[in-house]
């Protein structure tokens, strides 16, 4: 016999009351409720840059997703690690092609867009 969870009558009635109230409250959701969708939207048009780093005796493959106009807006994610650098390069090449919107790599990031004051 499967195990059932038992609650007493008063608790069950209180729960039904909450359901009744929540079901009857017909209010529109807030724009901020779906902001997570907009927040990730820039990733679709971002430039993808492969990045291989040698750490702890292994070559780690990273992908950097960078915003074209706002260069400081970027995400760096680790994909995999290899003990062989050639394998890491090959993986990085294919992973970049897979992740980038344009596979030929025309979406690039220009460092000139960074307006840094060196003085």
């Amino acid at each position: 016999m499967r195990v059932f969870v038992h609650i007493d009558d008063a608790a069950y009635l209180a729960m039904l009351g909450h359901i009744e109230r929540s079901a009857q409250t017909d209010t529109a959701g807030l724009q901020s409720d779906i902001s997570f969708y907009n927040e990730d939207f820039w990733l679709q048009d971002s430039a993808v840059i492969e990045n291989i780093e040698y750490r702890n005796g292994e070559w780690n493959v990273f992908l950097v997703f960078a915003h074209q106009a706002k260069l400081l807006k970027l995400i760096k994610r680790k994909i995999k690690n290899y003990s062989c650098p050639k394998k890491a390069q090959l993986t990085a090449y294919y992973m970049r092609k897979l992740a980038a919107k344009d596979q030929r790599g025309t979406i690039i990031v220009k460092t000139d867009n960074l307006t840094i004051n060196f003085s």
């Binding site: 016999m1 059932f4 038992h6 009558d9 069950y12 009635l13 039904l16 009351g17 009744e20």
Partner: peptide, 20 residues
């Protein structure tokens, strides 16, 4: 055990009717 579960379930139906 089945009888107990049956009573609990039918009681829940009665409570739902009462609340409604």
């Amino acid at each position: 055990q089945i009888q107990q579960e049956w009573l609990t379930t039918s009681n829940k139906i009665t409570l739902q009717i009462k609340k409604r």
